[in-house]
């Protein structure tokens, strides 16, 4: 595990009976759970296959019969059903002896207030540049400087580094965004929406991640502003930043965000 030293130290000395780990997608929440299972070798770690209510109830039934310390880990619980959350709430109010529960979330607002109040909330710490570089080297030992410069400018966590380094060519991606910056205000109104065809706006689709696209757009605008000193790029950064923050709302339509972003950037630039 790279980084998260403070968090690992805290949780390895004493694991609370109910821990809520909060962090962005790709920030290493699941890896942290696996690291904890390695550290707490004397405990049995159960990584639950899904977050359905039946799975939660099954885990609760088992929790009351445990004779040796057991940890039940529920990962990516942002979309856990209300029934499952309530079932979990019941057991976390008075956890049985020898039973520990860990849930991971992208946003704390995606869980019940009551559940939050019963758990020890741990936030994933931001990764330093060195930690991300260490990770990038571990997955691509041949990463060269120009590529790394780009990766570090748009990625905030190991998951994103992995996407950028392994899944697509970051230089090609930057060129694509650069082209978008050049033509977004010049293309016709009907044609401009075709930009989204290159982006992954639904889980089942293929393409570039929208968050990375927005960050790269900001980077390109920044670079161009430094050279051209055109204020339109600052407006572009402003609009994109506000849309970037909207992406953290669970269940938001990425297609809708993308379309309105296009319209807003054009409005500012035309």
């Amino acid at each position: 595990m790279i980084g998260q030293k403070t968090l690992i130290e805290t949780l390895s000395s004493c694991l609370p009976q109910f821990t809520i780990i909060v962090g962005d997608k790709g920030s290493g929440k699941k890896t942290l759970c696996q690291e904890l299972s390695r550290i707490h070798g004397d405990m049995i770690f159960c990584f639950e296959p899904d977050n359905k209510v039946d799975t939660v109830r099954q885990a609760i039934t088992e929790a009351y019969k445990n004779t040796s310390p057991t940890v039940y880990a529920f990962t990516d619980t942002d979309n856990m059903s209300g029934n499952a959350k309530n079932a979990l709430l019941k057991v976390t109010e008075e956890p049985p002896n020898n039973s520990y529960f860990i849930v991971t979330l992208e946003s704390l607002s995606n869980t019940l207030e009551t559940l939050r109040s019963r758990g020890t909330v741990c936030y994933m710490n931001p990764y330093t540049e060195n930690e991300l570089y260490e990770y990038a080297i571990s997955i691509d030992p041949d990463i060269y400087d120009t590529k790394w410069e780009l990766v570090k400018s748009i990625c905030e966590n190991p998951g994103e580094v992995k996407d950028v380094v392994i899944d697509f060519d970051v230089i090609e991606f930057y060129e694509f965004v650069d082209k978008v910056v050049s033509y977004i205000d010049k293309a016709s109104g009907s044609n401009v929406f075709k930009i989204s065809m290159n982006l992954k706006l639904k889980d089942e689709m293929e393409g570039y991640d929208l968050k990375l696209f927005f960050r790269t757009f900001i980077l390109v605008c920044k670079n161009r502003y430094e050279v051209e000193k055109d204020i339109k790029y600052l407006h572009g950064i402003q609009v994109t930043s506000s849309y970037l923050s909207e992406l953290s709302i669970t269940g938001i339509s990425k297609q809708g965000v993308m379309d309105l972003w296009i319209l807003d950037v054009r409005k500012e630039w035309m």
Binding site: S188, G189, S190, N191, F193, K194
Partner: peptide, 15 residues
């Protein structure tokens, strides 16, 4: 998209 399309090939232009 269709209303603002000035080209003849609407399908190609709008996707």
């Amino acid at each position: 998209q269709v209303q603002s399309c000035e080209e003849r090939d609407v399908a190609k232009n709008t996707g």
